[in-house]
């Protein structure tokens, strides 16, 4: 019989968290991480921040330590999205893609930094990240450029809804 003390040394993996992540596009790739750290040396966020480390983020994913990754002040937003880790990883884990999948999990919980939420809202309502205005089209006309037309949002909105069999995305 293991003592209570021994039990405390056991790492308990949260598989519910890992299964939820694995549902996301390329969210399952962290499983192939063998913690070599090739992603760290070339990571600008690691160079310029004392907190951000893609290898540690992948380790937390493997342990299922969701609470340390997704939350109001998540460290994941320090990622500069440069794709160096994707380039370097010998296991094709694509740490940046795992990080974006984790951000998808945060979005499912309604957690975004305000600046990010604002741009997403602009896209979801206008189909562009910069909304159209008369001033823009006047500026274009002066250059002899064709006017920008509104994006057919009736079509775009229909693409946001998950398929029935996808269930809770």
């Amino acid at each position: 019989m293991p003592s209570e003390k021994d039990n405390d040394d056991v790492v308990r993996v949260d598989f519910a968290f890992r299964r939820e992540l694995a549902e996301k596009v390329e969210g399952n790739l962290a499983s192939f991480c063998y913690q070599c750290g090739a992603c760290v040396g070339d990571c600008p966020a690691t160079t310029y921040s004392s907190e951000f480390n893609p290898r540690e983020i992948m380790l937390k994913v493997l342990y299922g330590l969701g609470d340390e990754l997704i939350g109001g002040d998540s460290i994941l937003w320090q990622c500069v999205n440069c794709y160096n880790c994707h380039e370097r990883c010998p296991q094709e884990v694509k740490p940046v893609e795992v990080i974006i999948s984790l951000k998808n999990m945060m979005a499912d919980r309604g957690i975004y930094p305000p600046a990010v939420k604002k741009i997403i809202h602009t896209f979801e309502t206008t189909g562009r990240t910069v909304p159209l205005s008369d001033a823009i089209n006047r500026k274009r006309e002066k250059l002899g450029l064709p006017p920008l037309e509104p994006v057919p949002m009736d079509e775009i909105e229909k693409l946001f809804e998950p398929l029935e069999e996808e269930g809770e995305e």
Binding site: K24, V25, E26, N81, I100, S101, K103, N104, A107, Y112, V116, I119, I120, F123, E124, G127, R128, T129, E149, V151, P152, E155, I156, L159, F160, P162, E166, E169
Partner: peptide
Amino acid sequence: DGASCCPDPIYFKSKDKLS
């Protein structure tokens, strides 16, 4: 004609990769 934002690979991709 009729194109929308690509959508951007930083913000909207962070919300929902499938959409």
